[in-house]
Write a protein that binds this DNA or RNA. Structure first.
Lengths: 352, 352
DNA sequence: TATCTTTGTGGGAGCGCTCCCATTTTTATA
DNA sequence: TATAAAAATGGGAGCGCTCCCACAAAGATA
């Protein structure tokens, strides 16, 4: 009975452990924090009690004392880029972030803005929540008051994608979207395609603009003229790919560059319905290399987008920043690679 | 200069605000917490200072004092069910959770287990992280030591999907997977199909088992005999749908029930390659109603799976539990609905 | 005007840590 | 053995809140 009463009472804090181990609160704290200034004998004694009691220190109290929480925030605004149609982007990014966070002992506080949430309120809640040591902001729209706020507050944050303003003083991780599009379109040019249409992404987003820019450059460098007729302004969605191709088919294209795989899928669907052969009649090239890129017919030639790596780098930079391991502004541009499959007929040409 | 020095110094805590407003720390606390026992005059005076200083109370200190953080945890184990192939499930669930969390003033701490993370360590970190008032555990594998631990610790948690053990004392939100499969297969039966194959989900997961069970019941109730030849054991993946259909085609099926839309897509792909007409030669029915269900050819007849609603209910129950608004064990079974499109030929039959 | 309520306000104690300085104990050196 | 230096330990103060009790001020009742 007495024994039971004894073992029932779990140790709640350092003081309890200290009492049980016959040392002081401070010594227990030192043991837990791996302070070398503790004798081996004491350390063992204290660890034994800690293990036996299954004790772990209260992170809230620790946070109050140290002003550090070991939590990083991830803000996912409800932007057109991250719709649930492209449900792949966001979990993959998160997976990369989580990989590094887990490794370095950080937890992730997730801020998902719902379409019905008021933006001001959403921001206010993030800003006043001081449970985080730093933030990763994923693909924000062009104007984004949060960023100004954090900049002003001199807070630790890293953006995924290149910011449209203050890019020089903001930490970010991105790919070179111009180059990505350039590589894709050049591939078409090299295969002899000359009426190359495009279904653009959202042109209010840096990524969309950059990919469109790369398209234009590749055409020019390939000796082709840029033709406004061959542009269909889309928004990264399946639907715009589907609608876009119908519009472009009238313009007699022999190939199309879609700004992402989702819209490429829409395009492929429409092409199939129209009885147009891919790649023989119209070649399709895209960006992202989603898992579905190999599930469509024909398998999609697309530029691989290292989404998970983006998350890893963003988390890594942020934690370095938090821990004071780096101080100057960090810019990371990850390499990309054109994955040649069958939707452009590259292999057919080689065989000729 | 003096003025600047003055305005530069942001108020850090209640005491600062109190000093500026000429009241005590306690009164400021009362104002912030909407305690009615404050005179209107004082309240206004204090609010004015708070607004002017842009002050918000430190949540860490508050958490230490109240033993409540207003944070809920979401654990996503790296289970076969939630692979990134079905990237839709997890963000959608999260979206539902976030919707309610935002509304009720809670933040979300996300625990994503990476394949390389050690399970014990992962659990240990969650358990010792007392930054959360409660947890939502999404689709765990059958044995899941976390659950036992939380059960033992008498912690607040809600599972998404029906747990395999202790279901009577665990809060959960789910759909009736037996009924779901039953509805799908009965649809085929009613359309006169009689050689109905199935590509099952992962049979180590409750959902997979239940859907298989529903398939069997529907066959029996439909006056058909259950034939082992027509079963292909899959795992919810695209690949198993693809492979499964090839195996089943040899068995002369006239229709197939796939355990989810992802595997249905794989099946459709293989069917198309094999030159088999859908729905004329083989009808396909599935579960989930992902956005891609309307993007395939033909559009998929499938049972709608209210994933986002699951998240909403789970969050809602958890927060009720935390706030003491409910005490007894909560079990929610959400309704589902068969969405008839073209992959089973229902409309064709109607026209006949 | 005296007394009892009611309403409003202030400040101590405490949440469980860390940090720092003072003190004790041990070890090295003369 | 005396003394200096180094290593180990203890405990106060403080992080910024909330909670509670004591008290002051204002209003109601006799």
């Amino acid at each position: 009975m007495t024994q039971m009463g004894n073992s029932q009472k779990r140790s709640r804090n350092l003081e309890d452990i200290a009492a049980r181990a016959g040392v002081s609160r401070s010594t227990v704290s030192r043991v837990i924090n791996h302070d070398p200034k503790v004798s081996d004998k004491t350390r063992e004694k204290v660890w034994a009690v800690i293990e036996q009691e299954g004790f772990s220190p209260n992170p809230v109290a620790r946070a109050l004392a140290t002003n550090r929480t070991n939590v990083i925030g991830v803000v996912i605004p409800h932007s057109p880029h991250i719709t649930f149609e492209d449900a792949y982007y966001f979990p993959t990014l998160l997976s990369g972030i989580s990989k590094i966070a887990n490794k370095r002992g950080y937890s992730i506080l997730l801020w998902l803005r719902q379409s019905e949430d008021d933006e001001r309120n959403f921001h206010r809640r993030i800003v006043s929540n001081r449970l985080m040591d730093g933030l990763i902001i994923a693909s924000p729209p062009q104007t984004y008051s949060l960023i100004d706020h954090f900049l002003e507050a001199n807070a630790n944050f890293v953006m995924v994608e290149r910011p449209s303003h203050h890019a020089d003083i903001i930490n970010y991780v991105t790919i070179d979207n111009i180059e990505v599009a350039y590589a894709a379109v050049s591939h078409l040019v090299n295969l002899g395609r000359c009426r190359i249409g495009t279904i653009t992404g959202n042109l209010t987003i840096t990524d969309g603009v950059d990919r469109f820019e790369g398209y234009k450059q590749a055409l020019l460098d390939g000796g082709l003229t840029f033709d406004n007729e061959l542009i269909y302004e889309g928004n990264f969605s399946y639907q715009c790919g589907y609608d876009g191709i119908k519009a472009l088919l009238d313009k007699n294209i022999d190939s199309v560059f879609t700004a992402n795989d989702i819209s490429a899928r829409g395009a492929l669907h429409a092409l199939h319905e129209a009885g147009v052969r891919v790649p023989e009649d119209v070649a399709v090239v895209s960006v992202d290399d989603l898992p579905t890129a190999v599930q469509v017919t024909p398998p999609l030639t697309t530029v691989h987008h290292p989404i998970e790596k983006k998350g890893e780098h963003a988390a890594s930079i942020l934690i370095d920043l938090i821990e004071g391991k780096v101080s100057k502004t960090q810019h990371v541009v990850l390499p990309t690679e054109l994955i040649v499959r069958e939707s452009c007929g590259a292999y057919l040409n080689v065989e000729n």
